[in-house]
Amino acid sequence: IGSLMYASIFGNVSAIIQRLYSGTARYHTQMLRVREFIRFHQIPNPLRQRLEEYFQHAWSYTNGIDMNAVLKGFPECLQADICLHLNRSLLQHCKPFRGATKGCLRALAMKFKTTHAPPGDTLVHAGDLLTALYFISRGSIEILRGDVVVAILGKNDIFGEPLNLYARPGKSNGDVRALTYCDLHKIHRDDLLEVLDMYPEFSDHFWSSLEITFNLRDTNMIPGSPGSTELEGGFSRQRKRKLSFRRRTDKDTEQPGEVSALGPGRAGAGPSSRGRPGGPWGESPSSGPSSPESSEDEGPGRSSSPLRLVPFSSPRPPGEPPGGEPLMEDCEKSSDTCNPLSGAFSGVSNIFSFWGDSRGRQYQELPRCPAPTPSLLNIPLSSPGRRPRGDVESRLDALQRQLNRLETRLSADMATVLQLLQRQMTLVPPAYSAVTTPGPGPTSTSPLLPVSPLPTLTLDSLSQVSQFMACEELPPGAPELPQEGPTRRLSLPGQLGALTSQPLHRHGSDPG
């Protein structure tokens, strides 16, 4: 009997000691992992102490058991019943959930998450997105703005933001810190809205009876308010094209079509300037034949640059190039080494500058006005007194259609001029006259002087055409309008007829 009692007592005591040691061994194993994590990542002392304290409290609170892992091991129907039991206190005593059906309560219970916070733990920081609604079931918390405590909340209090009033989550206007050990039930806004969409009859009752104890939403960050730039940057990543407008005076608003859609830094370009900076079609017209890549860069430059609305530039004389043409100036200075066709295309550029300027006046029909002061630039669209967005969009579309028509007509005119030049060069190729044979009589004449090349004649003739079109064909006081194609086609051969009437002889060394 004594040996039996000794064996039973010894066996029970050893089993008890073994169970104690097993729990202690698990605790030390998990604690060792936490300390190894702290050492590996070199976490500083204040945060390291918070980690160790939280682990110790969580171990004593749950005995080292992962409740979520245990809950996920059950089937979904059983999980709903378990969640309904775990959140029964909240669902029974909170006013917004009263009167809900059994199915609605089960769906809500599945969406709730339980959070346990030790003292000093910050649940929400200032500036964080308010993605959830919090219900306090135990403990107390404090809300701070800077170093000032603005509120202390306790059991059955609710904090967050009214989700039904805002389409997008706002930002917190303060820090939420736990004063004691707290148990909180939180539900994400997407989950709550999903359940309320499934039960629309409960939705009206819920929003009407929901009383948020403390609204954390920062009202200064609401979209459309003066301080909402940061919020707009976070939620409006896919922005449309940006529009900046110059201020319109009362006198300017009476004149229709007073602005032109141009790229940034293009205030001095012609009315047909689009795409790359520098001139019509993204580059100076005089350098068009020598740089074919300008047409390839036109599309990307047009689509990537934001639109700006600026006044037209001052008018340019008909014979003056659009500006920024070092290529043609070098050719004029060193005409001995340049291609003979460069002079002809220089005359073509003069005609283009004249036609572009006159067509700009035809479509816009307003006098040039000086540029406004820099303080009046970049007025935002949302400022008071601005035109409605639809009106601005319609004006932009009208300007775009005008620019497209202008570009089409300029292309047709350019093709006409090039065809005339090619026809003239085919009839009378460039050549130098040879020395004529002296006559049989004693009164022999001296050799004839060489005839100037055709490109120079073409430049003079085209300059005469531009001056003739600019000065004589337009009646005084009438708006400057571009001439039609047949009129220009008839004027060019008439001007060139006198020049080509002389018999030109080919030089023996000319390969053409």
Rank of each mutant, 00 (worst) to 15 (best):
201 E>Q: 07
260 S>N: 15
410 L>W: 10
494 G>Q: 14
164 N>V: 04
422 Q>P: 06
372 P>D: 08
431 A>Q: 14
219 T>M: 12
410 L>A: 03
419 Q>F: 13
442 P>C: 08
180 T>D: 04
294 S>R: 05
379 I>E: 09
292 P>R: 14
294 S>L: 04
145 R>S: 12
453 P>L: 08
506 R>V: 10
468 F>C: 08
230 E>D: 07
145 R>F: 03
371 A>D: 09
392 V>M: 15
360 G>H: 14
268 G>S: 10
313 S>Q: 13
244 S>C: 10
297 D>R: 12
402 Q>M: 14
303 S>C: 07
459 L>F: 12
235 F>W: 10
333 K>N: 12
313 S>N: 11
501 S>T: 10
433 S>A: 11
251 K>L: 11
407 E>W: 04
208 S>Y: 06
257 G>A: 10
425 M>K: 09
243 L>C: 12
351 I>F: 07
349 S>M: 11
284 S>H: 15
322 P>W: 12
228 S>F: 12
249 T>N: 11
474 L>E: 13
500 T>I: 13
477 G>E: 09
155 K>M: 08
150 V>T: 04
408 T>K: 14
155 K>H: 08
204 D>M: 13
160 G>K: 01
227 G>D: 10
170 G>R: 01
209 S>E: 13
195 V>G: 02
147 D>N: 12
450 P>D: 11
199 Y>R: 02
237 R>V: 13
461 S>G: 11
434 A>H: 10
350 N>Y: 01
215 N>T: 03
439 G>E: 05
220 N>Q: 13
195 V>Y: 01
387 R>F: 13
395 R>Y: 05
136 I>R: 02
475 P>T: 09
352 F>C: 04
284 S>K: 06
259 V>C: 14
162 P>D: 06
498 A>C: 09
456 T>N: 12
228 S>Y: 11
443 T>R: 15
221 M>F: 08
476 P>W: 14
327 L>V: 03
146 G>C: 04
193 L>S: 06
305 S>R: 14
477 G>L: 12
138 R>D: 13
166 Y>I: 04
305 S>E: 06
308 R>W: 03
439 G>Y: 06
170 G>D: 01
222 I>Q: 09
188 H>W: 01
155 K>W: 01
291 S>W: 11
149 V>P: 08
428 V>Q: 14
280 P>C: 01
409 R>Y: 03
229 T>N: 11
470 A>F: 04
182 C>V: 09
208 S>I: 04
441 G>A: 11
262 L>H: 10
498 A>K: 13
422 Q>C: 04
247 R>E: 15
326 P>E: 13
398 A>G: 12
206 F>H: 01
205 H>V: 10
184 L>N: 01
499 L>Y: 09
168 R>H: 15
322 P>L: 15
336 D>R: 08
161 E>H: 03
507 H>A: 11
427 L>G: 11
320 E>K: 01
223 P>E: 09
436 T>D: 09
196 L>S: 05
405 R>I: 04
342 S>V: 08
501 S>D: 15
296 E>W: 09
296 E>T: 15
228 S>H: 13
486 P>F: 12
198 M>N: 06
358 S>I: 05
471 C>N: 07
258 E>T: 09
220 N>L: 08
169 P>S: 05
306 P>M: 06
133 L>A: 01
206 F>V: 03
133 L>D: 01
466 S>K: 08
202 F>L: 06
444 S>P: 11
273 S>C: 01
406 L>R: 03
269 A>P: 09
243 L>M: 08
246 R>N: 14
351 I>G: 09
505 H>T: 06
341 L>A: 13
447 P>A: 11
226 P>V: 09
272 S>A: 10
496 L>Q: 12
371 A>M: 06
315 P>T: 07
479 P>V: 11
431 A>I: 12
156 N>F: 12
242 K>G: 11
444 S>K: 06
184 L>A: 04
421 L>Y: 13
137 S>G: 10
436 T>K: 13
156 N>V: 03
399 L>W: 13
290 S>L: 04
284 S>I: 08
364 Q>D: 04
386 R>T: 12
280 P>M: 07
225 S>V: 11
464 Q>V: 06
471 C>I: 05
289 P>N: 15
415 A>P: 12
232 E>P: 09
427 L>K: 11
164 N>C: 09
136 I>E: 02
212 I>T: 02
221 M>A: 08
239 R>L: 11
217 R>A: 08
461 S>D: 11
226 P>W: 12
253 T>L: 10
290 S>G: 13
157 D>E: 03
232 E>L: 08
405 R>F: 03
417 V>Y: 05
510 D>E: 08
447 P>Y: 12
297 D>Y: 08
451 V>E: 10
134 Y>A: 02
141 I>Q: 01
193 L>M: 11
291 S>H: 04
210 L>N: 03
378 N>T: 10
190 D>H: 07
173 N>S: 13
351 I>L: 12
189 R>G: 03
458 T>I: 10
379 I>H: 13
363 Y>W: 05
182 C>G: 03
428 V>M: 01
413 D>F: 03
247 R>M: 11
483 Q>P: 08
211 E>F: 06
512 G>T: 07
290 S>A: 10
438 P>N: 13
424 Q>D: 06
257 G>Q: 06
464 Q>I: 07
233 G>D: 10
405 R>V: 05
298 E>H: 04
450 P>E: 12
326 P>F: 13
411 S>Y: 05
237 R>A: 11
469 M>N: 07
465 V>W: 13
305 S>A: 14
362 Q>T: 11
359 R>Q: 05
421 L>I: 08
477 G>F: 15
356 G>F: 04
327 L>Y: 05
407 E>F: 01
465 V>G: 10
147 D>I: 01
435 V>T: 09
454 L>G: 11
147 D>G: 08
233 G>M: 09
151 A>C: 08
430 P>S: 07
251 K>G: 09
495 Q>T: 11
257 G>S: 11
327 L>W: 15
180 T>V: 04
211 E>T: 10
329 E>Y: 01
267 A>P: 06
346 S>H: 08
171 K>A: 04
224 G>M: 11
172 S>F: 01
477 G>S: 08
127 G>D: 03
392 V>C: 09
153 L>C: 03
405 R>Y: 01
178 A>H: 01
363 Y>D: 12
179 L>M: 12
427 L>V: 09
163 L>D: 03
298 E>R: 06
354 F>T: 07
400 Q>K: 15
451 V>G: 07
306 P>R: 09
460 D>L: 05
258 E>K: 07
475 P>N: 09
153 L>Y: 01
258 E>A: 08
163 L>V: 10
420 L>T: 10
409 R>I: 08
259 V>M: 11
227 G>M: 10
461 S>V: 05
376 L>G: 10
311 P>Q: 09
353 S>E: 06
129 L>C: 08
161 E>G: 03
300 P>T: 12
375 S>Y: 10
195 V>T: 08
318 P>F: 15
131 T>F: 14
470 A>H: 14
449 L>T: 08
209 S>W: 04
446 S>M: 12
472 E>M: 06
241 R>H: 11
452 S>N: 13
291 S>D: 11
323 G>H: 04
388 P>T: 08
430 P>A: 10
256 P>Y: 15
304 S>E: 10
292 P>Y: 15
477 G>A: 11
173 N>V: 11
155 K>I: 04
473 E>T: 13
262 L>M: 13
395 R>F: 08
349 S>T: 11
226 P>Y: 08
357 D>Q: 09
370 P>C: 12
220 N>E: 13
196 L>R: 02
236 S>W: 07
260 S>I: 08
242 K>D: 13
200 P>N: 04
478 A>V: 11
135 F>E: 01
238 Q>M: 14
150 V>I: 12
144 L>A: 07
172 S>Y: 01
365 E>P: 09
453 P>K: 08
236 S>R: 11
255 Q>G: 10
398 A>H: 15
258 E>W: 10
388 P>W: 13
479 P>D: 11
341 L>D: 05
144 L>E: 04
368 R>W: 07
458 T>A: 09
322 P>T: 04
312 F>D: 14
164 N>L: 04
303 S>H: 12
404 N>R: 14
180 T>P: 02
506 R>M: 15
241 R>P: 06
325 E>Y: 08
225 S>E: 12
227 G>I: 10
274 R>W: 04
415 A>S: 11
316 R>K: 13
431 A>K: 11
142 E>W: 01
358 S>N: 07
196 L>V: 04
